[in-house]
Amino acid sequence: MQITDATRPALADLDLRSELSTLRRELHRYPELGFEERATAERLRSWLVERGLEPSAPLAGTGFMVEVEGERPGPTVAYRADMDALPIQEATDVPYRSCTPGVMHACGHDGHMAIGCGVALLASRRRDEIAGTVRVFFQPCEERMPSGGPRMIADGVLDGVAAAYAVHLEPTLPVGRFGFRSGPLTAACAPFVVTVASDKSGHSARPHEAVDTVWVATQVATELYQLVGRVTDARKAAVLTLCRFQGGDALNVIPARVEFGGTLRCVDGETLAFLREKVRRVAGALGAVYGADVDVHFEPSLPAVVNTAPEVVAARTAAVDVLGAEAAVDLALPSMGGEDFAYYLERVPGAMVRVGSAGGADTRYPLHHARFDLDEAALPLAARLMTEVCIRDLTSRS
Protein backbone atom coordinates (compact mmCIF):
# COMPACT_ATOMS: atom_id res chain seq x y z
CA MET A 1 0.00 0.00 0.00
CA GLN A 2 1.34 3.43 -0.92
CA ILE A 3 1.27 5.80 2.07
CA THR A 4 0.16 9.33 1.17
CA ASP A 5 -0.95 12.36 3.18
CA ALA A 6 -4.53 11.27 2.57
CA THR A 7 -4.01 7.76 3.97
CA ARG A 8 -1.91 8.66 7.01
CA PRO A 9 -4.92 9.60 9.25
CA ALA A 10 -6.66 6.32 8.39
CA LEU A 11 -3.51 4.32 9.19
CA ALA A 12 -3.09 6.21 12.45
CA ASP A 13 -6.70 5.37 13.35
CA LEU A 14 -6.05 1.68 12.66
CA ASP A 15 -3.01 1.73 14.94
CA LEU A 16 -4.92 3.59 17.64
CA ARG A 17 -7.90 1.26 17.34
CA SER A 18 -5.62 -1.75 17.81
CA GLU A 19 -4.02 -0.23 20.91
CA LEU A 20 -7.27 0.88 22.50
CA SER A 21 -9.14 -2.32 21.65
CA THR A 22 -6.42 -4.46 23.19
CA LEU A 23 -6.49 -2.36 26.36
CA ARG A 24 -10.28 -2.33 26.49
CA ARG A 25 -10.48 -6.11 26.24
CA GLU A 26 -7.97 -6.54 29.06
CA LEU A 27 -10.03 -4.24 31.25
CA HIS A 28 -13.24 -6.03 30.26
CA ARG A 29 -11.86 -9.43 31.27
CA TYR A 30 -11.10 -8.32 34.81
CA PRO A 31 -13.82 -5.91 35.97
CA GLU A 32 -13.89 -4.53 39.50
CA LEU A 33 -16.65 -2.87 41.51
CA GLY A 34 -16.60 0.68 42.85
CA PHE A 35 -13.62 1.63 45.04
CA GLU A 36 -12.14 -1.83 44.40
CA GLU A 37 -10.52 -0.95 41.05
CA ARG A 38 -6.96 -1.67 42.19
CA ALA A 39 -5.91 -4.00 39.35
CA THR A 40 -7.76 -1.79 36.87
CA ALA A 41 -5.89 1.31 38.02
CA GLU A 42 -2.56 -0.53 37.94
CA ARG A 43 -3.12 -1.64 34.36
CA LEU A 44 -4.09 1.87 33.29
CA ARG A 45 -1.04 3.32 35.01
CA SER A 46 1.33 0.86 33.37
CA TRP A 47 -0.22 1.50 29.93
CA LEU A 48 0.30 5.25 30.32
CA VAL A 49 3.83 4.93 31.72
CA GLU A 50 4.81 2.69 28.80
CA ARG A 51 3.89 5.60 26.53
CA GLY A 52 5.89 8.22 28.37
CA LEU A 53 3.16 9.68 30.57
CA GLU A 54 3.35 10.19 34.34
CA PRO A 55 0.28 9.27 36.41
CA SER A 56 -0.29 11.10 39.67
CA ALA A 57 -0.47 9.72 43.18
CA PRO A 58 -3.78 7.99 44.03
CA LEU A 59 -6.92 10.11 44.31
CA ALA A 60 -10.13 8.98 46.02
CA GLY A 61 -8.53 5.60 46.76
CA THR A 62 -8.04 3.99 43.37
CA GLY A 63 -8.38 7.03 41.10
CA PHE A 64 -5.59 9.13 39.59
CA MET A 65 -4.86 11.68 36.88
CA VAL A 66 -2.29 12.32 34.21
CA GLU A 67 -1.42 15.74 32.81
CA VAL A 68 -0.21 16.69 29.35
CA GLU A 69 1.41 20.12 29.42
CA GLY A 70 1.53 22.02 26.16
CA GLU A 71 4.47 23.95 24.78
CA ARG A 72 2.70 27.22 25.55
CA PRO A 73 1.28 28.35 28.91
CA GLY A 74 -2.44 28.54 29.46
CA PRO A 75 -5.38 27.18 31.47
CA THR A 76 -6.24 23.57 32.30
CA VAL A 77 -9.14 21.56 30.93
CA ALA A 78 -10.08 18.16 32.32
CA TYR A 79 -11.30 14.96 30.75
CA ARG A 80 -12.86 12.28 32.95
CA ALA A 81 -13.13 8.49 32.55
CA ASP A 82 -14.89 6.20 35.06
CA MET A 83 -13.43 2.82 36.05
CA ASP A 84 -15.95 0.65 37.92
CA ALA A 85 -18.07 -2.25 36.73
CA LEU A 86 -21.52 -3.53 37.70
CA PRO A 87 -22.64 -6.54 39.79
CA ILE A 88 -24.03 -8.39 36.73
CA GLN A 89 -23.22 -11.88 35.46
CA GLU A 90 -22.08 -11.49 31.86
CA ALA A 91 -24.12 -13.44 29.30
CA THR A 92 -22.01 -12.88 26.18
CA ASP A 93 -19.78 -15.54 24.66
CA VAL A 94 -17.05 -13.19 23.38
CA PRO A 95 -13.46 -14.35 23.97
CA TYR A 96 -12.80 -11.34 26.22
CA ARG A 97 -15.86 -11.89 28.45
CA SER A 98 -15.55 -11.22 32.16
CA CYS A 99 -13.46 -13.65 34.20
CA THR A 100 -14.92 -12.30 37.45
CA PRO A 101 -18.13 -14.13 38.43
CA GLY A 102 -21.07 -11.80 38.90
CA VAL A 103 -19.23 -8.67 37.71
CA MET A 104 -19.05 -7.12 34.22
CA HIS A 105 -18.56 -3.82 32.42
CA ALA A 106 -22.20 -3.60 31.39
CA CYS A 107 -22.17 0.19 31.21
CA GLY A 108 -19.15 0.54 28.96
CA HIS A 109 -16.68 1.93 31.45
CA ASP A 110 -14.01 -0.30 29.92
CA GLY A 111 -14.57 1.69 26.73
CA HIS A 112 -14.56 4.96 28.65
CA MET A 113 -11.16 4.12 30.16
CA ALA A 114 -9.72 3.16 26.79
CA ILE A 115 -10.98 6.43 25.29
CA GLY A 116 -9.47 8.35 28.21
CA CYS A 117 -6.11 6.70 27.59
CA GLY A 118 -6.48 7.58 23.92
CA VAL A 119 -7.09 11.24 24.77
CA ALA A 120 -3.96 11.33 26.95
CA LEU A 121 -1.88 9.64 24.25
CA LEU A 122 -3.11 11.82 21.39
CA ALA A 123 -2.75 15.01 23.45
CA SER A 124 0.87 14.07 24.23
CA ARG A 125 1.52 13.79 20.49
CA ARG A 126 0.09 17.28 19.94
CA ARG A 127 1.91 19.20 22.67
CA ASP A 128 3.02 21.83 20.17
CA GLU A 129 -0.66 22.74 19.60
CA ILE A 130 -1.58 22.95 23.27
CA ALA A 131 -1.73 26.28 25.09
CA GLY A 132 -2.11 25.05 28.64
CA THR A 133 -2.70 21.60 30.12
CA VAL A 134 -4.96 18.66 29.32
CA ARG A 135 -5.71 16.77 32.53
CA VAL A 136 -7.13 13.28 32.01
CA PHE A 137 -8.41 11.65 35.18
CA PHE A 138 -9.72 8.21 36.02
CA GLN A 139 -12.47 8.07 38.63
CA PRO A 140 -13.54 5.16 40.82
CA CYS A 141 -17.12 4.21 41.68
CA GLU A 142 -19.49 5.98 39.32
CA GLU A 143 -22.22 3.34 39.54
CA ARG A 144 -23.32 3.52 43.16
CA MET A 145 -23.90 6.08 45.88
CA PRO A 146 -21.99 7.63 47.49
CA SER A 147 -19.95 7.78 44.31
CA GLY A 148 -16.37 8.70 43.54
CA GLY A 149 -16.94 12.11 41.97
CA PRO A 150 -17.17 14.11 45.22
CA ARG A 151 -14.10 12.33 46.60
CA MET A 152 -12.10 13.11 43.45
CA ILE A 153 -13.12 16.77 43.77
CA ALA A 154 -12.17 16.80 47.46
CA ASP A 155 -8.75 15.41 46.51
CA GLY A 156 -8.20 18.32 44.11
CA VAL A 157 -8.91 16.93 40.66
CA LEU A 158 -10.71 20.14 39.64
CA ASP A 159 -8.16 22.54 41.12
CA GLY A 160 -7.33 25.12 38.48
CA VAL A 161 -9.65 23.53 35.91
CA ALA A 162 -11.48 25.86 33.50
CA ALA A 163 -13.80 23.23 31.96
CA ALA A 164 -14.45 19.48 32.15
CA TYR A 165 -15.51 16.94 29.53
CA ALA A 166 -16.55 13.29 29.44
CA VAL A 167 -18.30 10.77 27.19
CA HIS A 168 -20.80 8.00 27.65
CA LEU A 169 -21.29 5.13 25.24
CA GLU A 170 -24.71 5.08 23.60
CA PRO A 171 -25.90 1.80 22.02
CA THR A 172 -28.90 3.50 20.41
CA LEU A 173 -26.54 5.44 18.13
CA PRO A 174 -24.39 3.85 15.43
CA VAL A 175 -20.62 4.10 15.45
CA GLY A 176 -19.50 7.43 14.01
CA ARG A 177 -22.41 9.38 15.51
CA PHE A 178 -22.08 11.59 18.58
CA GLY A 179 -24.99 12.96 20.59
CA PHE A 180 -25.04 16.57 21.81
CA ARG A 181 -27.44 18.39 24.09
CA SER A 182 -27.26 21.69 25.96
CA GLY A 183 -28.89 21.79 29.38
CA PRO A 184 -29.98 18.61 31.18
CA LEU A 185 -28.46 15.49 29.63
CA THR A 186 -29.35 13.09 32.46
CA ALA A 187 -31.76 13.09 35.36
CA ALA A 188 -31.22 13.79 39.02
CA CYS A 189 -31.55 10.52 40.92
CA ALA A 190 -32.68 9.82 44.49
CA PRO A 191 -32.40 6.18 45.68
CA PHE A 192 -34.79 5.31 48.50
CA VAL A 193 -35.81 2.47 50.82
CA VAL A 194 -39.24 2.07 52.45
CA THR A 195 -39.53 -0.10 55.57
CA VAL A 196 -42.94 -1.34 56.78
CA ALA A 197 -42.79 -2.79 60.28
CA SER A 198 -44.97 -4.15 63.08
CA ASP A 199 -44.13 -5.21 66.63
CA LYS A 200 -44.89 -8.86 65.88
CA SER A 201 -45.35 -11.39 63.11
CA GLY A 202 -48.71 -13.05 62.44
CA HIS A 203 -50.41 -16.20 61.21
CA SER A 204 -51.44 -16.22 57.55
CA ALA A 205 -54.81 -17.73 58.56
CA ARG A 206 -55.63 -14.74 60.79
CA PRO A 207 -54.29 -11.54 59.14
CA HIS A 208 -56.89 -9.48 61.03
CA GLU A 209 -55.09 -10.28 64.29
CA ALA A 210 -51.80 -8.81 63.05
CA VAL A 211 -50.54 -5.98 60.90
CA ASP A 212 -50.22 -7.47 57.43
CA THR A 213 -46.93 -5.78 56.51
CA VAL A 214 -46.80 -7.35 53.05
CA TRP A 215 -50.26 -6.06 52.20
CA VAL A 216 -49.48 -2.59 53.60
CA ALA A 217 -46.22 -2.52 51.63
CA THR A 218 -48.05 -3.35 48.41
CA GLN A 219 -50.60 -0.58 49.08
CA VAL A 220 -47.78 1.92 49.61
CA ALA A 221 -45.97 0.71 46.49
CA THR A 222 -49.12 1.04 44.38
CA GLU A 223 -49.72 4.58 45.59
CA LEU A 224 -46.13 5.61 44.92
CA TYR A 225 -46.35 4.36 41.36
CA GLN A 226 -49.31 6.70 40.78
CA LEU A 227 -47.65 9.90 41.95
CA VAL A 228 -45.78 10.85 38.78
CA GLY A 229 -48.09 12.70 36.41
CA ARG A 230 -50.86 12.96 39.00
CA VAL A 231 -49.28 15.31 41.53
CA THR A 232 -46.55 16.65 39.23
CA ASP A 233 -46.63 18.44 35.88
CA ALA A 234 -46.60 15.71 33.25
CA ARG A 235 -44.47 17.97 31.02
CA LYS A 236 -41.60 17.69 33.50
CA ALA A 237 -39.94 14.31 33.09
CA ALA A 238 -39.96 12.10 36.17
CA VAL A 239 -39.93 8.36 36.82
CA LEU A 240 -40.27 6.30 40.00
CA THR A 241 -39.24 2.65 39.79
CA LEU A 242 -39.17 -0.03 42.49
CA CYS A 243 -36.37 -2.55 42.03
CA ARG A 244 -36.21 -4.45 45.31
CA PHE A 245 -38.91 -6.06 47.48
CA GLN A 246 -37.96 -8.21 50.47
CA GLY A 247 -39.90 -9.68 53.36
CA GLY A 248 -40.60 -12.93 55.13
CA ASP A 249 -39.22 -16.47 54.98
CA ALA A 250 -42.22 -18.77 55.49
CA LEU A 251 -45.32 -19.16 53.35
CA ASN A 252 -47.64 -19.15 56.35
CA VAL A 253 -46.15 -16.35 58.48
CA ILE A 254 -46.88 -12.64 58.05
CA PRO A 255 -43.46 -11.05 58.60
CA ALA A 256 -42.91 -8.32 61.13
CA ARG A 257 -40.87 -6.36 58.61
CA VAL A 258 -40.98 -5.75 54.84
CA GLU A 259 -38.57 -3.60 52.91
CA PHE A 260 -38.71 -2.32 49.35
CA GLY A 261 -36.94 0.39 47.42
CA GLY A 262 -35.84 1.86 44.12
CA THR A 263 -35.09 5.21 42.57
CA LEU A 264 -36.86 8.48 41.95
CA ARG A 265 -35.54 10.37 38.91
CA CYS A 266 -36.38 13.87 37.71
CA VAL A 267 -34.84 16.26 35.22
CA ASP A 268 -35.22 19.29 37.50
CA GLY A 269 -34.39 19.59 41.18
CA GLU A 270 -37.66 21.29 42.13
CA THR A 271 -39.74 18.32 40.99
CA LEU A 272 -37.36 15.93 42.70
CA ALA A 273 -37.68 17.75 46.03
CA PHE A 274 -41.48 17.86 45.72
CA LEU A 275 -41.78 14.15 44.97
CA ARG A 276 -39.39 13.19 47.76
CA GLU A 277 -41.70 14.89 50.24
CA LYS A 278 -44.79 13.32 48.64
CA VAL A 279 -43.29 9.84 48.92
CA ARG A 280 -42.68 10.38 52.63
CA ARG A 281 -46.16 11.75 53.27
CA VAL A 282 -48.05 9.10 51.28
CA ALA A 283 -46.09 6.23 52.84
CA GLY A 284 -46.50 7.61 56.34
CA ALA A 285 -50.22 8.27 55.93
CA LEU A 286 -50.94 4.75 54.65
CA GLY A 287 -48.91 3.27 57.46
CA ALA A 288 -50.95 5.23 60.01
CA VAL A 289 -54.24 4.10 58.47
CA TYR A 290 -53.30 0.41 58.73
CA GLY A 291 -51.36 0.50 61.98
CA ALA A 292 -47.88 -0.08 60.56
CA ASP A 293 -44.68 1.82 61.26
CA VAL A 294 -43.49 3.09 57.87
CA ASP A 295 -40.08 4.68 57.43
CA VAL A 296 -38.79 6.22 54.20
CA HIS A 297 -35.05 6.69 53.86
CA PHE A 298 -33.63 8.65 50.92
CA GLU A 299 -29.96 8.22 50.18
CA PRO A 300 -28.05 11.32 49.00
CA SER A 301 -29.40 12.52 45.67
CA LEU A 302 -27.32 12.54 42.51
CA PRO A 303 -27.77 15.81 40.59
CA ALA A 304 -28.54 15.99 36.88
CA VAL A 305 -25.77 16.39 34.32
CA VAL A 306 -26.37 19.90 32.96
CA ASN A 307 -24.22 20.64 29.91
CA THR A 308 -23.27 24.29 29.38
CA ALA A 309 -24.26 25.66 25.99
CA PRO A 310 -20.94 27.22 24.83
CA GLU A 311 -19.03 24.01 25.50
CA VAL A 312 -21.67 21.89 23.72
CA VAL A 313 -21.64 24.17 20.68
CA ALA A 314 -17.84 24.04 20.52
CA ALA A 315 -17.77 20.25 20.90
CA ARG A 316 -20.43 19.83 18.21
CA THR A 317 -18.46 22.07 15.86
CA ALA A 318 -15.35 19.98 16.48
CA ALA A 319 -17.27 16.81 15.61
CA VAL A 320 -18.42 18.26 12.32
CA ASP A 321 -14.95 19.57 11.48
CA VAL A 322 -13.11 16.36 12.40
CA LEU A 323 -15.60 13.66 11.42
CA GLY A 324 -18.10 15.29 9.07
CA ALA A 325 -21.56 16.84 9.33
CA GLU A 326 -23.27 13.47 9.75
CA ALA A 327 -21.29 12.79 12.95
CA ALA A 328 -23.24 15.33 15.04
CA VAL A 329 -26.64 14.25 16.35
CA ASP A 330 -28.80 16.70 18.30
CA LEU A 331 -30.50 14.96 21.22
CA ALA A 332 -34.02 16.26 21.73
CA LEU A 333 -34.58 14.66 25.13
CA PRO A 334 -32.44 13.92 28.17
CA SER A 335 -31.78 10.44 29.48
CA MET A 336 -33.49 9.51 32.73
CA GLY A 337 -30.35 7.67 33.79
CA GLY A 338 -28.05 9.12 36.42
CA GLU A 339 -24.40 10.08 36.00
CA ASP A 340 -22.06 11.43 38.64
CA PHE A 341 -20.21 13.59 36.09
CA ALA A 342 -22.93 15.97 37.29
CA TYR A 343 -20.82 16.84 40.34
CA TYR A 344 -18.05 18.27 38.17
CA LEU A 345 -20.44 20.36 36.08
CA GLU A 346 -21.88 21.88 39.25
CA ARG A 347 -18.47 23.52 39.69
CA VAL A 348 -17.09 24.17 36.20
CA PRO A 349 -18.55 24.49 32.70
CA GLY A 350 -18.30 21.55 30.36
CA ALA A 351 -20.15 18.81 28.56
CA MET A 352 -20.74 15.09 28.37
CA VAL A 353 -20.98 13.70 24.83
CA ARG A 354 -22.86 10.55 23.85
CA VAL A 355 -20.73 8.20 21.74
CA GLY A 356 -22.48 5.91 19.28
CA SER A 357 -21.29 2.36 20.02
CA ALA A 358 -23.61 0.15 17.93
CA GLY A 359 -22.24 -1.69 14.92
CA GLY A 360 -24.68 -4.57 14.66
CA ALA A 361 -27.13 -6.70 16.62
CA ASP A 362 -24.53 -7.79 19.18
CA THR A 363 -23.72 -4.20 20.12
CA ARG A 364 -27.26 -2.83 20.38
CA TYR A 365 -28.10 -4.28 23.77
CA PRO A 366 -28.99 -1.52 26.23
CA LEU A 367 -26.76 -0.27 29.01
CA HIS A 368 -26.76 -2.51 32.12
CA HIS A 369 -27.81 -5.53 30.03
CA ALA A 370 -25.94 -8.79 30.64
CA ARG A 371 -25.14 -8.96 26.91
CA PHE A 372 -23.99 -5.36 26.53
CA ASP A 373 -20.99 -4.94 24.25
CA LEU A 374 -19.59 -2.21 22.01
CA ASP A 375 -18.22 -1.86 18.51
CA GLU A 376 -14.58 -1.00 19.16
CA ALA A 377 -14.43 1.18 16.03
CA ALA A 378 -15.99 3.82 18.30
CA LEU A 379 -12.88 4.02 20.50
CA PRO A 380 -10.40 5.84 18.21
CA LEU A 381 -13.14 8.11 16.85
CA ALA A 382 -14.12 9.23 20.35
CA ALA A 383 -10.50 9.64 21.42
CA ARG A 384 -9.76 11.80 18.36
CA LEU A 385 -12.84 13.94 18.88
CA MET A 386 -12.39 14.55 22.60
CA THR A 387 -8.70 15.36 22.17
CA GLU A 388 -9.70 17.95 19.59
CA VAL A 389 -12.39 19.31 21.93
CA CYS A 390 -9.92 19.74 24.79
CA ILE A 391 -7.24 21.40 22.64
CA ARG A 392 -9.76 23.78 21.06
CA ASP A 393 -11.14 24.67 24.46
CA LEU A 394 -7.66 25.61 25.68
CA THR A 395 -7.00 27.65 22.57
CA SER A 396 -10.23 29.60 23.02
CA ARG A 397 -9.31 30.50 26.60
CA SER A 398 -5.70 31.49 25.97
Rank of each mutant, 00 (worst) to 15 (best):
V306T: 13
G118P: 09
A120K: 09
V267M: 05
I391C: 07
V279S: 03
R125E: 09
L227K: 08
S396E: 06
R8P: 00
E388L: 11
S98M: 12
V258A: 12
L272A: 13
R181S: 04
E223S: 14
A91H: 13
C390M: 14
A10Q: 04
V103F: 02
G261W: 06
A325T: 03
S98Q: 10
H368V: 02
L275F: 12
L59Y: 06
A188T: 13
T317V: 06
L275I: 15
D233M: 00
M145S: 01
P174K: 08
F192D: 06
G160A: 09
V220M: 09
L345M: 11
T133E: 09
M145A: 01
T213M: 10
A221F: 08
Q219N: 08
L20H: 10
D159Y: 00
L122F: 07
P87K: 15
A190M: 12
T133G: 07
A238T: 08
I153R: 09
S182F: 02
G359T: 11
S21L: 12
A304Q: 14
F64N: 12
A91R: 14
C390Y: 11
P58S: 05
V119H: 11
L379R: 14
A319P: 08
P55L: 12
T7F: 10
S124P: 05
L275Q: 11
L48M: 15
R43I: 11
I130G: 08
A256P: 07
Q2I: 04
H109C: 01
T92A: 03
G324Q: 12
L374H: 10
I153Q: 09
H168V: 08
V253E: 02
W215K: 03
V296F: 03
D5V: 01
R244L: 09
E50W: 06
